[in-house]
Design a protein around this nucleic acid. Structure first.
Lengths: 221, 221
DNA sequence: CGCGGAGTTGATGATCTTCAAACATGGTGG
DNA sequence: CCACCATGTTTGAAGATCATCAACTCCGCG
């Protein structure tokens, strides 16, 4: 927060998770199959995670099954930071996903010994905060069309503006991220397609191309 | 907008802000009248703020006037932290408010010289993040009654469970915090009053007493 | 082939917003 | 001390948006 994160807004750290805690710390690589839980709400927050490939959703649930997805994490992103001893939300792999993990205690030790790159660590937490704050505006004040347009532009940017975008999540995940139902998301996408702002690749529903980013940005407010 | 405030004598402080930057840093005290802007979106993020008395709202606005309040800050809270050079939000005094301010650069220098309590700094950012994440769930997935009940319990806790609670914000502020309209907030409060979960003090609308915190917590999910 | 998961589309309904009116409150000045 | 006005709040009625329920299609896969 207090440090300048400038251009590399989406790049949490300079490359490797180990940089965060100096060269003294080991990382392990883990692989999760599609749909598998990486950690659950209430579990001990023992590790911090960085995605090397794949995609992850972090979310909270209400007792009656309502779910709010806080964020989708893609390649290079880190997640799992906690203040307390337990995770306050859950994380699942959206697709086959590979992660580096590092023990939280390693980072804490490293901090104690002043070998941590504090700037990077704080930048990362602040990025999560800024993303959450942007999302508050979306959830509190945007219409369904605006939410979907915002979502498409966010994914487009994070996937580096590919000509053909492959969404790693289904309609329900998008809906639970945007505070809508999957039907409303589907309807909004159909409207944007009918307005020629995007098109789907053949008969697929997850491979799509943004045809008019400028017009989408107007929807985005 | 520091021009509107009266500068008090420079003095060392104790409490969080001082912990953050060590004992070497000085703070000024400023006072803002009700409704006055403390800083605006896009302005240089030169200072960090801590409330000694009063209350502050931080918020973002869309071009057409829609507003989302991210948080209400009360006595002891800090706000105004940013990653970049500019504020990403605005902040106004809700009531007559006194704040301590410290130059961001002081904290940055202190970090450089390793005199900052890094743990505290990261904890602070993480606390903001956790509040935002809780609020995502509220905005994305809770009904109007649930939102208002959650809000009342949050204020109750932050004001240390007073027998009589004095809200420093009006209905519109509450609505813009909860992603509702002021009418919906008013209706929800009337329902909770009719159900004897709370009562207003006399004919006032901002002084109220929670009569059944347990029942409110059930609404809160 | 048939089955199940994912997505689309339509009809209906609930919740919340919008528009409007009435009332209360608190400060100001005659 | 009271009239007066701006601001804030409540309440009602009507309307819009989104959710729910349901039917159907498409595709992948055993």
């Amino acid at each position: 927060m207090l440090v300048n994160a400038n251009a590399a807004a989406r790049q949490p750290i300079d490359g490797h998770l180990a940089d965060l805690a100096g060269e003294h710390v080991f990382c392990s690589e883990f692989k999760y199959r599609k749909g598998i839980e990486i950690f659950g709400e209430g579990e001990d927050a023992e590790y911090v995670y960085q995605i090397t490939s794949g995609a992850v959703r972090t979310y909270r649930m209400l007792p009656d099954g309502r779910r709010q997805i806080n964020a989708f994490h893609l390649q290079g992103d880190m997640f799992g930071f906690e203040n307390g001893v337990a995770h306050r939300f859950s994380a699942d792999a959206l697709v086959e996903t590979q992660v580096r993990i590092i023990k939280r205690s390693s980072i804490l030790d490293a901090m104690q010994n002043r070998v941590v790159s504090n700037k990077n660590l704080i930048c990362f937490v602040t990025q999560n905060l800024q993303h959450a704050e942007d999302h508050l505006l979306l959830l509190g004040r945007k219409s369904s069309l605006e939410r979907v347009a915002t979502f498409l532009l966010e994914m487009d940017e994070r996937l580096a503006h590919p000509s053909m975008m492959l969404l790693p999540m289904n309609r329900r995940d998008i809906a639970d991220y945007l505070g809508l139902t999957l039907e409303t998301v589907s309807r909004a996408l159909s409207i944007l397609r009918d307005e020629a702002l995007l098109r789907f690749d053949g008969n697929t529903q997850r491979r799509l191309e943004l045809l008019d980013r400028h017009a989408l940005a107007e929807f985005d407010v």
